[in-house]
Amino acid sequence: MTQNRRTVVDPRKADRRRSLMFKIGAAVVLIAVAAGIGIWAVVSNSEDSSTGGSATPTIATEDGSIRVSAAPKGTQPKAVVSVVEDFQCPACGAFETRQGATLAELSKNPNVAIDYKPIIFLDRSGQTDYSANTANASMCVAEASGKDGNMESWLKFHNLMFTNQQQEGGPGPSSDQLRKWAEQAGVTGVSKCIEDNQFGKWLTEQSSTVLKDPGFQGTPWVRLNGKTIDAMGMSPEQLTTAVTDAAK
């Protein structure tokens, strides 16, 4: 006759086993988290390399503008509309509302170029960096997306900043908001460029040159082939006629 034997479990050994299993599980979780952070860092660094490491944008024209044009690469359009603007400037916002669509349409003419030059003009020392931050973000987006000469994404970002323009003299949009607008315009990988103010020094120098120009009276400053025009006082039809005539 076989006797049933009861197995006696040492509670201390059971506790030790549970403790060991818990430690192993915790270690696995920590390894997984560390691996995830490592992958995120690699991806983030890869995305943030889209503007490169240079403090000078490679996509700017000789005078530091962002050119929107359908002109073949390497050619010089007959009509160049230059627009000097500040992203916190209310008059610039009004100008974009009035003539932005007209300029976008004119830029489709291969004999026309629209040169946008964001400057740092309306910042108040020690109070706001609105102009500086938005101008830099603009260059970040242009550098990340326009190396093939196509500034469509940059123009979307440009328009978003004016559509969502905040009060002059205020703090302006945050770095996170600028990044979100960039993504809305179809551009990623500019977070580091925006946060580090990558093109800040270059923009300060460019802005200083404009402010010293005898022809500069404020923003927006619009010129057609170098000659100042009252584009704000023109109707869209008048502006179209003036530019297309210069492009012939």
Results as ranks from 00 to 15, higher is better:
92 C>F: 04
80 V>R: 06
186 G>F: 02
137 A>G: 01
106 L>G: 00
84 V>N: 06
148 D>S: 11
126 G>F: 07
105 E>Q: 15
131 S>K: 02
84 V>M: 14
179 R>V: 03
89 C>L: 12
188 T>G: 13
167 Q>E: 15
95 F>G: 04
150 N>K: 10
170 G>A: 15
133 N>W: 00
185 A>H: 01
84 V>Q: 04
98 R>C: 10
139 M>K: 01
114 I>M: 12
169 G>F: 05
173 P>T: 14
85 E>Y: 11
181 W>C: 03
103 L>R: 02
193 C>G: 01
101 A>H: 12
107 S>G: 09
147 K>H: 05
123 D>V: 13
122 L>H: 03
190 V>R: 01
87 F>V: 14
108 K>R: 15
99 Q>D: 07
183 E>S: 08
181 W>A: 00
94 A>P: 06
104 A>L: 13
121 F>W: 13
151 M>T: 09
129 D>P: 08
119 I>Q: 01
165 Q>E: 08
179 R>L: 05
109 N>D: 12
86 D>H: 12
108 K>P: 12
150 N>W: 10
102 T>P: 10
192 K>Q: 04
128 T>M: 06
138 S>H: 02
115 D>V: 12
168 E>A: 09
140 C>D: 00
191 S>P: 09
151 M>S: 05
125 S>I: 14
153 S>G: 07
111 N>R: 09
158 H>C: 06
193 C>I: 00
168 E>F: 02
95 F>N: 03
150 N>Q: 12
159 N>T: 13
104 A>H: 08
144 A>L: 05
89 C>Y: 02
150 N>I: 08
154 W>A: 05
121 F>L: 15
150 N>E: 08
142 A>I: 13
128 T>P: 05
147 K>V: 13
119 I>E: 01
84 V>D: 03
162 F>I: 07
124 R>W: 11
113 A>E: 08
108 K>F: 13
148 D>V: 10
144 A>M: 03
142 A>V: 10
112 V>K: 04
108 K>D: 13
180 K>L: 10
177 Q>T: 15
187 V>R: 00
173 P>C: 14
192 K>G: 01
85 E>W: 06
175 S>E: 01
131 S>Q: 06
175 S>T: 05
145 S>T: 04
192 K>V: 02
167 Q>W: 07
181 W>Y: 10
143 E>R: 00
